[in-house]
């Protein structure tokens, strides 16, 4: 359905937030949110890749045949991730070191492949770019919000700056893995409350229960092939 440009942009911020509503890209969400600097770096890196790959895939959407579309998408995405990697290693070495392997893992971040499949395939370059910006921003905001909770409660600092009165009262549970899952669940619940549960349709099994059902093409293609 053709939505207005603005709604494409703000879609990814809350209503279809890739992390808290579509529940995509949970691996970097859990791994990179124990400090706000890491979260910010990961969010921006993924956003850049998302915008660029969305635009390129959208530009090539009429040329790429369906049979090889996944390999083509992955090559494009991997290319942009490598560019971001090299640039970061050269110009922001500290951030590069703290992101570690997760920078390369952006290639398999479900958000990027997911949006390529669900949006860039069907929409023009400008719209795809807007979607990329919206989803990328949504991802970054989601990561930052999780990292804020985890870093302040777990390490008593924010963006690496120690908070004076928190120093002796940190609860390391939150920076550890179980705390990450816990905060993640709580934030999903909070977003549910804010969107009054309308963001996710009622839970069913099968395709209807997936948050991306409205824009998914798997069923359509399966029907076409019959």
């Amino acid at each position: 359905m053709k939505k207005g440009y603005l709604s494409v942009l703000i879609n990814g911020l809350l209503k279809e937030n890739p992390v808290f509503v579509l529940v995509l890209g949970t691996c970097p969400t859990l791994a990179m949110t124990d400090s706000a600097t890491k979260a910010f770096g990961m969010g921006i890196a993924a956003a850049i890749v998302l915008i660029c790959s969305n635009m390129v895939i959208s530009a090539l959407r009429k040329i790429i045949p369906d049979t090889v579309r996944i390999p083509c998408y992955i090559v494009v995405i991997a290319g942009f991730v490598t560019i971001v990697q090299m640039a970061m290693q050269a110009y922001m070495p500290d951030m590069y070191k703290s992101l570690g392997t997760y920078l390369a893992l952006i290639v398999v971040n479900c958000i990027i492949l997911g949006r390529a499949e669900m949006f860039a395939r069907e929409n023009g370059i400008f719209r795809s770019a807007l979607d990329g910006i919206g989803m990328g921003l949504g991802f970054t905001i989601a990561l930052l919000s999780m990292a804020t909770v985890r870093e302040i409660l777990g390490a008593g600092s924010f963006f690496g700056i120690a908070i004076p009165f928190m120093k002796n009262y940190t609860i390391p549970f939150f920076t550890q893995a179980p705390g990450g899952f816990f905060v993640f669940g709580c934030l999903i619940a909070v977003v549910n409350v804010i969107t009054k549960g309308k963001a996710i349709k009622k839970k069913e099994f099968g395709c209807e229960g997936c948050p991306s059902y409205a824009v998914c093409h798997v069923e359509k293609i399966a029907k076409e092939e019959q």
Partner: peptide, 23 residues
Amino acid sequence: SVTVLFSICLVIALLLAAVNFIT
């Protein structure tokens, strides 16, 4: 299919070579 995939790979490879040259 093969042509398209190959050309995309080629273009990306060239792009990466260029960025590598700089960085």
